[in-house]
Amino acid sequence: MYRILKRQRLAEGTYDFWIEAPEVAQHTRPGQFLVVRVHDRGERIPLTIADAQDDKVRIVVKAVGKTTYELCSRKKGDELADVVGPLGRPSEIDRFGRVLLVGGGVGIAAIYPIARELKRVGNHVTVILGGRTAEQVIMRDEFGFADRVLITTDDGSLGIKGVVTDAMKQVLDSDEVDVAWAIGPTIMMKFCALLARERDLKIWTSLNPIMVDGTGMCGACRVSVDGKIKFACVDGPEFDGRFVDWDELLKRLTIYREEEQKSLQRYLEKVGDMTWL
C-alpha cells in the first residue's frame, strides 16, 4: 500500500500530493511518470512525477473525471492500492545553453523537475507558466531558481493577458533558445509545437494519450510521430512536438468519452456535491 503523506490544494480541483513509494522515489528521473490505482476496482491512470525525496514522490493532479476526482478527495494518511513506476524515458538533460520551458495548467508540475535539473547542470533557464486565471498558475513561487519567469493568464489576472504562445513569441523574438519543452493540455502543446516548427526550434512535448499498463504491453497509448507508430509509455512520453500528429492524438483522446461521462455522473450521484474540490 502507498500512503498519502501530504495533501495540499493548489487551485480549484487541483491537488498536490506526496506519496510514500520508496522504490519509485529512489529511481525516478525528471520526465518520468507513474501509474496509480486508487482502489481495488480502480482504473490505472498515468501521472507525472513532479518531484521525489527519500522515500516519497510528488504528484500534482487535476480532477477531470471519475478517477482523478476520487484521487483528489483522498486525505492525508489514506492509502492508494497501487503506485507503479517510474515509467517512460527520462527527459534528455544536457548542457544545451539557453533553454525555454512552457508549462500550462497541471503541466506546470511536469516541467518543474525538468527545469530544475536543466538549471542544475548549467543552462540558462526561461520558464513560461500559463493558466486560465492567476489561481491556475500553480507552483509559481517554486520557480525561483529560473533565470527568467513569464506568466500568462487568459483573463489577464496575472502577468501577460493571453496564452502561453504569446509569451513564447516574445521570448523567441528577443532571445536565442537552443531547445524547448512544452507540457500542458494537448491543444496547448500542439500550438507551441506549431510555433516551434515555424522557428525551427526543437521542442519536447510530453504526450498524454490514454494508457492502460504503461509498460508497452497493450498499445493503447500509440501515437504517430514522423509518420511512425510509437508507444508513448515506453518510447516517450516526450517526443519532438514538431513531428507529432496532434490531430490524431486529440481524436484518440475522445475514444472513451461516453464511458468517462457515464462513470463520472454515476460517481457524482453517489457522493453528492463535489464543488468544494
Binding site: E23, V24, H27, D82, V83, V84, G85, P86, L87, T215
Partner: peptide, 10 residues
Amino acid sequence: TDIIVGKTIS
C-alpha cells in the same frame, strides 16, 4: 507486485 524490474528496481 507493482515492481517493474528495469524501472522500479534495476
